[in-house]
Amino acid sequence: MIDTSPLSDDIGFLLTRAGTSMTQAATTALAPFDLRVRSYSVLALACEGEDGIGQRRIAEKLGLDPSQIVALVDDLEDRGLISRTVDPDDRRHKRISATTEGRTLCADAQHALGAVQAKILNSLDDNAVRRLRRVLQSLVP
């Protein structure tokens, strides 16, 4: 027998719609910072550690081809938000680190994103949001 449950019960459809809503809201929230979701994501990853992050690792974490990261890094570097240095562990690779200006902008953008996410998730209590985050983290490689 074929499952003919309504689209409103389809997990893939619901995740896609929820993701689209979050992305649209994030795009609007990031616009005043002259960031888009992908450029913000690169900047946020660069801010996570004091030693920066490898450019290939950024691609892996974002699920993008490494060639897609180059233009994002170039733009952020041109704006003085990140710096690119040779990876001391492998001179063929680059490490991306946030500058002081980049860290400040990222913190401001995170604050704006937090407000937008809180508005979207306002029908969920704190425990439900934590559970949702854990479930989504378990699905993302």
Rank of each mutant, 00 (worst) to 15 (best):
D125W: 07
R17W: 06
I69P: 01
R79Q: 14
R36W: 00
V86T: 15
S97R: 15
V37H: 06
I69L: 03
Q137T: 06
G54V: 02
A118H: 14
A59C: 02
L132N: 01
D65S: 10
G52M: 05
D74H: 11
P6D: 11
V116C: 10
T104G: 05
L136S: 07
S67E: 04
Q24T: 13
G102Q: 05
F33Y: 13
I11H: 06
S138D: 12
A112S: 14
S41N: 10
F33H: 15
A29V: 10
G12K: 04
V42A: 04
S41R: 10
I11C: 00
Y40P: 00
L62P: 05
I82Q: 08
I11D: 01
L76I: 04
D34M: 06
I120S: 06
A26S: 15
S97T: 15
L72Y: 07
T27C: 03
L132D: 00
N127W: 09
L7W: 11
E60Y: 08
R133D: 08
F33M: 06
L62N: 02
L113S: 09
T28G: 11
V42T: 05
R95Y: 02
H93T: 14
S67P: 00
P32M: 05
L14M: 10
L64K: 11
A46L: 05
Q137D: 14
A71K: 08
S97V: 12
G19I: 05
V86L: 08
A118V: 06
L35T: 01
S138W: 01
T99K: 11
P141K: 10
E48A: 12
I120R: 13
L76Q: 02
L14Q: 13
A71Q: 08
I53W: 02
T4C: 04
G102N: 07
V37G: 08
G19R: 11
F33P: 01
A128I: 00
G114F: 12
S41M: 04
G63A: 03
R56I: 08
S8V: 10
L45T: 03
L30R: 07
S21D: 07
Y40A: 05
S39K: 07
V86F: 01
A112P: 06
F33A: 07
R17G: 01
A112Y: 07
E77H: 11
S138I: 00
N122I: 05
R134K: 06
A18P: 02
T28S: 14
Y40T: 00
A26C: 09
R91S: 13
L15S: 09
R130D: 14
L43C: 07
L139W: 10
D126R: 11
Q55L: 08
T100C: 00
L81R: 07
L62A: 01
S8D: 12
A71D: 05
L43K: 06
C106L: 06
L76P: 01
K94A: 13
T4Q: 04
P6T: 03
R56F: 07
P66K: 03
S21C: 07
G63H: 06
P66H: 11
A118R: 15
Q68D: 10
D75C: 03
D3W: 04
Q24V: 12
D51L: 11
L15P: 03
L64P: 03
S5G: 08
